[in-house]
Design a protein around this nucleic acid. Structure first.
Lengths: 276, 276
DNA sequence: GAGTGGTCTAGACCACTGT
DNA sequence: CAGTGGTCTAGACCACTCC
């Protein structure tokens, strides 16, 4: 036996899927629905809460409940990484022109606002493990917040950790006032003789913490975040950067391309130990 | 001004973070907490609902509320793809031994149960777009459900679409009774002369639909799913397989490694248009 | 059967948004 | 100010789990 609110939620959902309630459209007020389904206010609100939690509707205090529109997704591709690396070799004027975020969003630099904050911390157990360094190793922590100008909803929150001993060789790297640095992290590392060889992305998904939801501008509930840990490894095998990036799940799509090695060509393709 | 239930939720969360309530531990009963905070039952339950939605606690009807333990994550790496491809060249006995899921989980084949279902469908607009084929193109749809023997919670739900015209060349590929096919999809495609050149993964995150939550064995709320679309492209540039994989967010970690091209070595690494 | 969480009601009052 | 959603109470009754 399912509960009343579940049945009501399912019914409303069906109506939405069937297009009887279109995306962006305002739903009947709660008091109206309450009468239609003959339930108490709380039960009605519970049904709506279910829909909100699954991201189907959006509640706006004092205004109404609305069928949620799919939000435009920003695609973040792997090619971005090679592009970022190559950019570090360009002359400053070109490096200065655009960064990786602009490239992914298609927006120009003026459309984006950017905040950076630097501090020096000591590695806790978890970070030390990633860097394969002792606990307490000094790290330069940089936090960023990238947001689009018009939407005001941040695209990503991120924190990057660099081994202090490596970056301290260039004092300019320790000052947040030099952000956004033309040419990005690859160029920054280049000034201290570091070349990134490969990047490992670890991707997980989870519900956001309250503060995260707020910072990412996720007003409505029912949204997940993608937690991306990006680990940069240099040509000598050292971990030179660990970046934790938090992306709004319904606004982001990650794209990874894996190139596979070719099979040896010495035999025809139809073969195998079965049949024939 | 925050609400009572928000403050209570924050307080309980603090206690959990501080370790006053340990993971796996049973929380005080709702009636006890209700007295401690001097609120009505509904308010207390709302506070707990907040924690449940953020995945902090787990409610068990008739038993109690429990602090949630972090679930062990299964890591799914990109190297898997190359490994899967190479496996298609092995003799049948070796192909038969293990599949990719076993490799990722470290479990043996006997620990896993496996269900496959085949059908022929016509491409809708969305799938047709991915295949760059006309709407209505016939596709072989294969749905899979992989679960661990002991846990009974499925690891992944997936659906794979193959162009019917390509796979029909080998009638054995049209019969689900041949699953699990030794050597996997790469070997299946090999029997019809197809070699996969690269794989594009599109990753998004969202709250699960009710049925999905049930099928993935997500009893508690407060979990996200990772939606992964894996597109296989063959050596001639055709899309030969589109697989939609649904992974439980708190049990999965995706790992992607991106190898970067080296910078030209004709110049010393410390340089750039700035300083020195 | 005792103890726990799950559903539901009726009604009061507050807070936000728009005109 | 009217209309909307947000919070909260007190209390009833049901459903599940375990002893």
């Amino acid at each position: 036996m399912t509960s009343k609110y579940d049945r009501i939620a399912a019914d409303l959902r069906r109506m939405i899927d069937a297009g009887e309630l279109a995306p962006g459209q305002k739903m009947p007020s709660e008091t109206v629905l309450l009468g239609k389904y003959n339930v108490s206010l709380l039960t009605m609100r519970r049904a709506l809460a279910v829909l909100e939690a699954s991201g189907v509707i959006e509640k706006r205090h004092g205004v109404g409940n609305f069928v949620r529109k799919a939000r435009a997704r920003v695609t973040r591709t792997t090619e971005r990484y090679q592009w970022e690396k190559d950019r570090a070799l360009l002359p400053e004027s070109k490096r200065r022109s655009t960064g990786a975020t602009e490239r992914d969003t298609g927006l120009t630099k003026d459309d984006l606002s950017f905040q950076a904050h630097y501090s020096v911390i000591e590695a806790d157990e978890e970070l030390a493990g990633v860097f394969k360094a002792p606990v307490g190793t000094r790290l330069l922590k940089r936090t960023y917040r990238t947001e689009t100008g018009d939407d005001s909803a941040p695209i990503a929150l991120s924190a990057s950790y660099l081994p202090y001993e490596i970056v301290a060789a260039n004092p300019k790297l320790l000052d947040a006032a030099n952000e956004p640095w033309p040419g990005g992290t690859h160029h920054q590392l280049r000034t201290v003789g570091v070349e990134v060889d490969r990047i490992v992305d670890e991707v997980t998904a989870r519900p956001p913490f309250p503060e995260e939801a707020e910072q990412l501008g996720i007003d409505a509930a029912g949204v997940s975040v993608i937690s991306l840990r990006k680990i940069s490894i240099d040509t000598s095998g050292r971990v030179v950067d660990v970046a934790d990036v938090l992306l709004s799940g319904d606004r982001t799509q990650l794209v990874y391309t894996t190139q596979l090695n070719r099979w040896p060509t010495d035999r025809p393709s139809t073969k195998g130990s079965k049949r024939k």
